[in-house]
Design a protein around this nucleic acid. Structure first.
Length: 259
DNA sequence: AATCAATCCAACCGCCAGGGA
DNA sequence: GTCCCTGGCGGTTGGATTGAT
């Protein structure tokens, strides 16, 4: 017995949404809120599958969406978050208010990938491309990355309109990344919001993603925590102070010891 | 002006995880 | 413990738009 389809496809529209459909969806959600997506289309008088409605709402119709181009700060934040999280677009989107995972994913694939490549950085590993080519062991790779990073810091690169080369990835405060060798395991990232955040009302409670809960609570990115192997000190003590800050604890390399 | 190529992005698809029966 | 349903996620597709020739 095969998996039942999410909806009756024979009687649903596909493709681009019309203005009328948008209006129906908006009107329905305004009155009833986001609810059961499966039953929503019928209730709202739409010939769409629930999934399609959900996607349309989340990616396009939601009133809190930010429109327009990504800022340079958002660019850099996405790059850093991707370095930490990989292709976890919903988590990344959770750190960028008003942006959707789909939008970020598209932006990554069309703009940022190219931007990183032009910097000589592998968009998947966030490591200098050359390093991967001539290193054979992880230890060698690390060594080579260090060498490259050191070189780049003394060699001016201006390939992307002056916004930097490999060395740019090292944050000024010495936060750890793949791009520098300091083993500072405490990496905090947040939007460059300069004023102290008001005790702002958290975003409307949406069950839309786990990321939404990270607006309210810090997210521990410790690998062991993530895998459920153990909870890290920060988690145990609940000392993630700023709800808009990630705490990333990089796993130890093989043979590496805590001092 | 016409054609082709490249790029963008909204939407779809399949899979997975969580929760309830 | 198992099955099923639903929501959510990431990858991919294809139509629309823009740029180059």
């Amino acid at each position: 017995m095969g998996r039942s389809p999410c909806c009756e496809k024979a009687h649903t529209n596909k493709g681009a949404w019309t203005k009328e459909e948008d209006q129906k969806l908006i009107a329905y959600i305004k009155v009833h809120g986001e609810g059961c997506w499966r039953s929503l289309p019928k209730a709202a008088g739409l010939l769409r599958c629930g999934k399609s409605c959900r996607l349309r709402w989340i990616n396009y119709l939601r009133p809190d969406l930010k429109r327009g181009n990504f800022t340079e700060e958002e660019d850099e934040l996405i790059i850093k978050l991707h370095g930490l999280l990989g292709n976890k677009w919903s988590l990344i989107a959770g750190r960028l208010p008003g942006r959707t995972d789909n939008e970020i994913k598209n932006y990554w694939n069309t703009h940022i990938k190219r931007k990183l490549l032009s910097r000589g950085i592998d968009p998947q590993t966030h490591r200098p491309i050359a390093a991967a080519a001539f290193a054979s062991t992880p230890a060698q790779q690390d060594h080579n990355i260090v060498t490259l990073a050191a070189k780049s810091s003394t060699t001016t690169t201006d390939d992307t309109g002056g916004d930097g080369g490999v060395g740019r990835m090292s944050s000024p405060d010495g936060a750890a990344s793949h791009y520098d060798i300091d083993l500072n395991l405490d990496l905090s990232i947040s939007l460059p919001c300069h004023s102290p955040r008001p005790p702002s009302p958290p975003p409307p409670p949406s069950k839309h993603s786990a990321a939404s809960s990270s607006h309210r609570e810090g997210v521990c990115l410790s690998l062991s925590c993530h895998l459920g192997l153990q909870s890290c000190e920060a988690c145990r003590r609940q000392i993630i102070p700023n709800p808009y800050v990630f705490r990333y604890i990089r796993p130890l390399e093989e043979g590496q010891h805590i001092n």
